[in-house]
Write a protein that binds this DNA or RNA. Structure first.
Lengths: 185, 185
DNA sequence: GTCTATATATGGATAGAC
DNA sequence: GTCTATCCATATATAGAC
């Protein structure tokens, strides 16, 4: 039957999970394949059965996130204030869905990730998101509002680092503030 | 006379300048001493006359920034709303004074920098700044406002990346939005 | 799918001459 | 203050056995 003989068919997923955690907490360049392999109880060579390069691992971690982000932007209605607020809400949900470690990997390792070929796609998506969020025919002040709303959502990862408050409460507060700043309350 | 025979007494400063630019644009781990040396037209070994380790270079880059930041926080009056707004204004000036590359080095390489011994001091200072900015006896919502005001100022570096708008205008808009978000308009 | 062994490159750092 | 030469550790990646 399906699912019976897959004792280690999940190795690929486990590599992605450990890679995400280590990349997020130590940085991409500072995390070696040996470290990932050790945590999984395998050797470095085993990783190369599942991924051709180190970069392929981080690509595997980020690809679903990027696809969802692009879908968000694609489906937005940037002409109306309601449509832009809706986009901001969906972005907040998207961030919550992918979790704190992925948020940290992207935001707090922005240079490292953004300089990778795949990472530049994420940078492009972020820029499209900011432009869409700001709306058409935008002033610098409106662009600043959109950007601030965007980083307000992202900053949940910063707050959740060593706070006693629970993540859900932090997300709700961040969304509240982000929404009110988006169009000047 | 002083200043006559200093053809290369400024090498130390030039190392810091090139290091800042490369660390900010490529990341700390991804920038080799060889690359810094090449841009200066010297060899790696020459760097070791001026700095004992690679880490000492990034410490030299960040130390003035950290001292100024701590002085800001020390001199703040966190008991009143006016005092907290004043702190935010001074933080904005401080960021402007140290420039975009240093802002990027800290914010967009947060994991790499923050995991260095010296970098953890900056993380601590940021946390003190956030706490001070939020004021005494703070709710989650007020903490979120303080954090959002903080990242709004930081996000100038993100905006200045490929925009035609001038840096000064971006800074003013960021401060305006940050101030209005700090205490809920 | 995972292992051992190894090729190959590059990094930070030091010794000692000039 | 800068150079050449080198040490040494660690990194990614591959070959081939099991």
């Amino acid at each position: 039957m399906a699912g019976v003989d897959n004792r280690r068919t999940d190795t690929r997923e486990r590599i992605l999970a450990v890679g995400l955690r280590l990349f997020a907490s130590q940085g991409y360049a500072n995390t070696s394949l040996r470290q990932i392999a050790d945590e999984l109880g395998v050797t470095k060579a085993a990783l190369y059965f599942h991924f051709k390069t180190k970069e392929d691992i981080v690509t595997g971690i980020l690809t679903g996130y990027l696809d969802g982000l692009n879908a968000l932007i694609e489906g937005a209605e940037p002409q109306t204030a309601e449509g832009r607020e809706q986009l901001l809400r969906r972005f907040a949900e998207h961030q919550a869905h992918w979790g704190l470690n992925l948020m940290r990997l992207i935001r707090e390792n922005f240079t490292e990730i953004g300089n990778l070929p795949f990472g530049s796609e994420i940078k492009k998506a972020f820029r499209r998101l900011l432009d869409t969020l700001a709306g058409p025919g935008t002033t610098v002040l409106e662009q600043t509002r959109a950007r601030t709303a965007f980083v307000a959502i992202q900053s949940v990862a910063l707050a959740a680092e060593d706070k006693s408050a629970d993540e859900r409460e932090l997300r709700e507060a961040a969304l509240t503030v982000a929404l009110e700043v988006l169009h000047g309350r």
